[in-house]
Every structure is written in C-alpha cells, then in structure tokens.
C-alpha cells in the first residue's frame, strides 16, 4: 500500500515535471477540453483511491476508467462546443459531485482507521 502511494506520488511528480518542461504548450483553444479531461482524470484517481480503501480496487477498471472518462469528458465538451451546448458544465457538475463524494468516503475511511 505504501509502495503504491509512493509510486503514485512519484508518477505525479514526474508527469508534472515533464508537463512543465516540454516545449510544446497547450494551444489556447484546447485548454477548455484539457480542463474537463483533467477533472475527469482526477475523479478517476480519487475513485481508484476510494476503491483501494474499500478493497475493491481493480486495475483494469481503474486504467480504462481513467482514460475513457478523460477522453469522453473532453470529447463531449468538444461536441457541445460544436453544437453550442455547454456540455462541459454537465461534465464539471457530474465529475465534481463524484469527486467530492469520493473525497468524503476516503476521509471517512481514514478517520475510521
């Protein structure tokens, strides 16, 4: 478990480092999609952590959920933009609510132990 947390933090730091130092900057037009995708990814990660506390962690579900949630959120936002529907709001609300739920559950687990 500690190994997992350590590796996760290491990966996060590594990714952040790469993100800060790669010369390609995210085009302004895609910042919106990336924001929604990041939100979805965050939700997936917290979902994974919660599953780990519940001992229901499934690696495949975790990995596929992470990528498909991110891509779907970004894709829906893009489609919404093309159709002049603010679908990213739906994504923000849905993932935001789940994020806080997950956080609450994780907090309870931590407090119980």
């Amino acid at each position: 478990m500690r190994m997992g947390i350590f590796l996760a933090l290491l990966g996060l730091g590594l990714g952040a480092l790469i993100g800060f130092y790669i010369p390609v900057a995210l085009p302004q037009d895609y910042a919106k999609y990336m924001s929604v995708a990041a939100l979805a990814a965050l939700d997936s990660v917290f979902g994974g952590i919660r599953a780990a506390f519940e001992d229901k962690f499934d690696q495949e579900i975790f990995v596929t959920g992470f990528f498909s949630n991110a891509l779907l959120a970004a894709g829906l936002t893009y489609i919404g933009d093309r159709l002049a529907i603010d679908l990213y709001l739906a994504a923000v609300v849905a993932f935001g609510v789940r994020l806080f739920q997950n956080l609450a559950i994780i907090r309870r687990y931590i407090l119980k132990n």
Partner: peptide, 24 residues
C-alpha cells in the same frame, strides 16, 4: 503491473494538470 499502471496513470494526471496549469 498494478504499481506500473498506477504510476502511469499518476504520471498522465500530473502531465495533464501541469499542462493545464501552464495554459491557464
């Protein structure tokens, strides 16, 4: 493999967040 996948996911998340941070 689980650790690797967790690390990968975390790395991707970090990348996304930092990219987004820079963009904003």
């Amino acid at each position: 493999s689980m650790y690797i996948s967790i690390m990968l996911v975390a790395a991707v998340l970090g990348l996304m967040l930092s990219l987004q941070f820079r963009a904003v």
